[in-house]
Write a protein that binds this DNA or RNA. Structure first.
Length: 306
DNA sequence: AAATCACTCAACCGCCCATAT
DNA sequence: AATATGGGCGGTTGAGTGATT
């Protein structure tokens, strides 16, 4: 059977058809090699979110979660393993990493908890808004490169009506794009959703579901300032002031290392580790986590997550 | 040229959840 | 309230293909 050709002798259920459309037939799917930038993003987001392919896919427009998952399993996972990094935990297998960065790691874990909760809330709110507002569909259609085609399943839907506490994470970036969003959706609807969500406490339940034991302390009133601002991330997460934050190209170093390592994939992993001192290893790992933090801090304004 | 191996990726599976009946 | 249906998601499979022996 030719790749991509359905087996006509095998009847497909509706679910199978939908899946085929979602993962293969959709016109707005980008095919072919992943770019370095896309690899960067996948590695960094996987370190933050784990195997949440659909969440990762929202950051890679025109790539499906299935494609990202396959690419991770067939390429990136091996590459990390060859470098002596556990692709699950993103920590070195010898356990030397993060001796001075355990705090960062803990904070990233905390961030991941926040992100999990935020995704829950976002999905729920988008769904509710869509049900209630044809204007939102109109907004999404205008945002699409294929306005006449079916709605891409994984296409980011733009700034979504987060509860205040979630909106606060994005800070100025969200504010910038949200004005455009409000023009299309109508502020009343958004406000209603936010208020309703706040009143119902649903997102607090989502926080509890995600393992945040005491979500009460994260009420919007207590955390209105943008938690994900650069300043906050630098001081609170890295444990030092922003002047110690790595430079832009510094943040690229480790993922560049990963990408470059693909050239000698298969035999370079061991030697890379053998001739590197512990200090080099720590530095690489430091860069690795810094790059993730940098991604968090520098995500484009249209990012639905940060 | 044939056999074997390694790799890719679309498709399938099972689970969970939301909604409809 | 119970059941059916459909969608979303992550994990896994296996057919196809190219490289190697």
């Amino acid at each position: 059977m030719e790749a991509g050709e359905p087996c006509l002798s095998m009847p497909r259920c509706g679910k199978s058809c939908r899946l085929r459309w979602t993962n293969y037939l959709r016109p707005d799917i980008k095919r072919g090699k992943f770019t370095s930038q896309e690899e960067h993003t996948i590695i960094q987001l996987h370190a933050l979110l784990g195997n949440r392919w659909s969440a990762i896919a929202t950051h890679l427009q025109k790539r499906t979660d299935n494609e990202i998952k396959n690419y991770w399993n067939t390429h990136l996972k091996k590459r990390l393993a060859n470098m002596g990094i556990d692709p699950v935990t993103h920590k070195p297998k010898n356990g030397t990493l993060l001796s001075g960065h355990s705090k960062n790691s803990a904070n990233l874990s905390h961030m991941a908890q926040w992100e999990n909760a935020r995704l829950e809330a976002e999905a729920r709110l988008v769904k509710q808004s869509k049900l209630r507002s044809p204007a939102l569909d109109s907004f999404q259609a205008q945002d699409s490169e294929f306005p006449s085609g079916p709605s891409p399943v994984h296409k980011p839907v733009g700034p979504s009506p987060y509860p205040d506490v979630l909106k606060g994470w994005i800070g100025g970036a969200w504010e910038k794009t949200s004005s455009s969003f409000l023009e299309h959706v109508g502020e009343g609807i958004l406000t209603d959703e936010l208020e309703r969500e706040k009143d119902s406490g649903n997102y607090l339940a989502a926080l509890r579901d995600e393992g945040i034991d005491n979500p009460v302390q994260f009420t919007p009133e207590l955390h209105e300032p943008p938690l994900f601002s650069t300043e906050w991330a630098s001081e609170s997460m890295l444990g030092h002031t922003s002047e110690h934050v790595p430079s832009d190209n510094f943040a690229e170093t480790f993922t560049d290392l990963l990408l470059n390592n693909s050239c000698d994939e298969g035999d370079g992993g061991e030697s890379d580790n053998s001739n590197g001192s512990d200090g080099d290893s720590c530095e690489g790992n430091r860069n690795y986590w810094d790059s993730i933090l940098n991604l968090v801090n520098s995500s484009p304004s249209d990012s639905p997550i940060f």
